[in-house]
Write a protein that binds this DNA or RNA. Structure first.
Lengths: 220, 220
DNA sequence: CGCTAGTACGGTACTGAGTACAGCCACGAT
DNA sequence: ATCGTGGCTGTACTCAGTACCGTACTAGCG
């Protein structure tokens, strides 16, 4: 079987980074090992860090597409499935994802790069949800909180899996996501109810709960 | 009045970045303008980006100190006040903060740098809260969600202020933070009550609420 | 006063990432 | 056959960041 230039660069980079460390490896070494010219490397990846994150643009596009199909009433589902797309990508990568995790954990420059790419996902979720909640009280804030919560829950279970602390990643994901989706209550179809009350008495809180439930069922 | 080398470098850098753009400005130009040697620049700031974020280490230390003094029962307050420390720092910076915001908004490299420093705050909160919730069900996940929520709420109101969309930043902060502190409910002394229920009926949810309130008041 | 140690600064020389540019070759279409 | 066109290569350059050494100034001590 034959490999593309891109694939040969990626494997060469991974091997060298693991053998010598990221900083100690020069782009010249990578291109020599891959048997291509130096210019080709930078045309393909832009920066030395990017060679480790070669699929994010594509995954980002898939996530955006999924969020774009959400309709009122299916938004919580769309958010959850969109996050699931990212997770599935890591699962598909398998051992490659773990190799990258070991590298990003130990090299500060790579950590920063990874954080930046997480931020791109966060922004994508944030933009969509903000749009959905436009006009609602505290919509912008609630949207950002929901987006970060989804990303955080996703990253939490993903990291457990990358560390080898867990094996049933989909199950962990299903468990963690409801925490994250609290601020999208009216979307959850009554399965999970969240009420925030500042009432001073127990009966006041209960009244707030009944009010909230009545409002939610009126939406349904 | 006399200025330290550090201060002269900072002002020179800000001026040049605003006049010519960040990428078009070389470290040589900054040091020439400030009247110091090139070596001094890198000894003082490490990287060209760092000159724009000169106080984060110190603020980070203050935040850590505040979180360290939290005791069971005062944790929600500690978290809120710790976030407030960061906010107050920006308020004290005043126009400098806005100048930096304009730069970070337009230059990708600076945006990444800023995101990375936000992540440092997030980690700090996360570490403390994780420690507090050790042993509780889903403690690690809830801790991360709380930390990110606090950071998100903080950043949300801060950004409004930096954009000039609001003037009463402390008030916005007080309003936004309760959203973020939802997952620290048992700490809020009853002022904010959050209940997550999966009960299939209204009465079931209400029963869950009463149970949760009973449990919380037993803690008090 | 001389001596010493620490601290802040400066200069030189180097590595290596990233850019600009010009050229080359294989290919498919007309 | 030739004419793009897309993927590849080499050369030369800028500039951030590092290593190393030398130099002033100050503080403290005999």
């Amino acid at each position: 079987m034959t490999f593309t230039t891109r694939e040969r660069l990626i494997t060469a980079a991974f091997d060298l980074f693991e053998a010598q460390g990221f900083d100690a490896t020069t782009v010249d070494q990578i291109t020599t090992q891959a048997g291509v010219g130096r210019t080709t490397f930078f045309r393909t990846f832009g920066t030395k860090e990017d060679v480790l994150f070669p699929h994010h643009d594509e995954v980002l596009a898939r996530v955006a597409a999924r969020l774009g199909t959400a309709t009122p009433g299916t938004r919580a589902v769309a958010v959850q499935e969109a996050a699931r797309i990212v997770l599935d990508h890591y699962i598909a990568e398998g051992e490659v994802a773990r190799r990258r995790y070991r590298l990003t954990s130990s090299v500060p420059a790579l950590r920063e790069r990874e954080i930046a790419s997480v931020e791109r996902y966060r922004r994508l979720f944030s933009q969509h949800i903000t749009h959905w909640l436009e006009g609602e009280p505290d919509g912008a804030l609630r949207a950002e909180l929901t987006a970060t919560a989804v990303i955080t829950a996703h990253n939490h279970v993903l990291r457990q899996w990358l560390r080898g602390a867990t094996t049933d990643l989909p199950r962990d994901f299903e468990r963690a996501m409801p925490f994250a989706l609290r601020t999208l209550t009216s979307e959850t179809g009554g399965q999970t109810v969240v009420v925030v009350s500042s009432a001073p008495s127990v009966e006041g809180v209960v009244a707030d709960v009944r009010r909230a439930l009545a409002r939610d069922s009126a939406h349904a």
